[in-house]
């Protein structure tokens, strides 16, 4: 599948267009799972990935840990640079962006992490954490204005205003994930990359977080890139799903189709590994 760009569902100009993205790590410095599974000095963590993402769309990316999902996410945010490939964001050359252009584009793409607990500074109050991107990108906004916007965003994320003045450790895992989401959305990005946003959470809390992401996607007209090792989790929100194995997309299609009639052996393996709940009469 590498090399071909699979068109997004609607014909409009895509928000993000990725072509043949490639990134290798030297064996010594690469993550263990990648290093172990590849012979030779260089291991390609992302090995020729191409896709497009429409405005307002949710694309799911599924694969085992070490398959390159997080490396891909970091490339999309330009936290690391690819060895080769192209990326266009809002029609602009995202990889070529420098200086002021880089800064304006950068605030339009935000990330939500798996372990929001680890990504939140424990000594900072939640209001400061959520408002921090504003302090960086809108330095002239006074502190009161920053707090007001942080409070509004926390409310949109399902937490009360009073959360502003508390510390991350006072919140449960699910609430901390809401804080992480509020922080990611405070600059009104157009694209949110959520890397395993629910895999550290209980199924029931995870369902609430997925609901929240989907609601915010609609409210703020976001595009969402939802990354997870669980195909059923991803398929709850995504319209299309890409299955990633050893740095490549081995299957991509409509979520229903990938779930109901997986084409690639690896997709079938992933699905077979999912523990099933016996069907019962509790379903609506």
């Amino acid at each position: 599948m590498s090399g071909t760009v699979v068109a997004a569902a609607n014909g409009a100009e895509p928000l993000l267009e990725v072509r043949n993205l490639r990134k290798s790590f030297s064996r010594a410095s690469g993550p263990l799972s990648v290093a172990e599974s590849h012979a030779g000095g260089l291991a390609a963590a992302v090995d020729g990935v191409s896709f497009t993402l429409a405005r307002g769309e949710t694309l799911g990316i599924v694969g085992e840990s070490g398959c390159g999902k997080t490396t891909l996410a970091r490339l999309l945010l330009r936290l690391i640079e690819p060895d080769s490939g192209e990326m266009r964001f809002r029609g602009q050359d995202w990889l070529g962006a420098r200086g002021a252009e880089l800064r304006t584009l950068r605030r339009r793409i935000q990330m939500v992490f798996q372990d929001s607990a680890a990504s939140l500074d424990p000594r900072m109050r939640v209001g400061t954490i959520v408002g921090e991107p504003l302090a960086i990108h809108e330095p002239r906004l006074p502190r009161a204005g920053r707090l007001a916007r942080a409070g509004a965003m926390l409310e949109a994320a399902g937490l009360g205003h009073e959360a502003l003045f508390r510390y991350p450790h006072e919140f449960s895992g699910g609430q901390r994930q809401r804080i992480g989401i509020a922080r990611a959305l405070i600059l009104h990005p157009e694209l949110v990359v959520a890397d395993e946003p629910v895999s550290a959470l209980d199924v029931s809390v995870g369902a609430q977080i997925l609901e929240l992401l989907d609601r915010l996607r609609r409210e703020f007209s976001l595009s969402l890139l939802l990354i997870s090792h669980s195909l059923p989790v991803v398929a709850q929100l995504a319209t299309r799903v890409a299955v990633m194995q050893r740095g490549r997309f081995v299957e991509m299609g409509a979520a229903e189709q990938v779930l109901q009639s997986p084409q690639h052996t690896y997709t079938r393996e992933l699905l077979a590994a999912v523990p099933r709940i016996p069907a019962g009469d509790f379903s609506p």
Binding site: A207, L210, Q236, I277
Partner: peptide, 14 residues
């Protein structure tokens, strides 16, 4: 049970 992601593409229900 309703909140658990299933293999069908079920509506989220937390």
């Amino acid at each position: 049970l309703r909140a658990a992601p299933g293999l069908g593409r079920n509506k989220l229900e937390s």
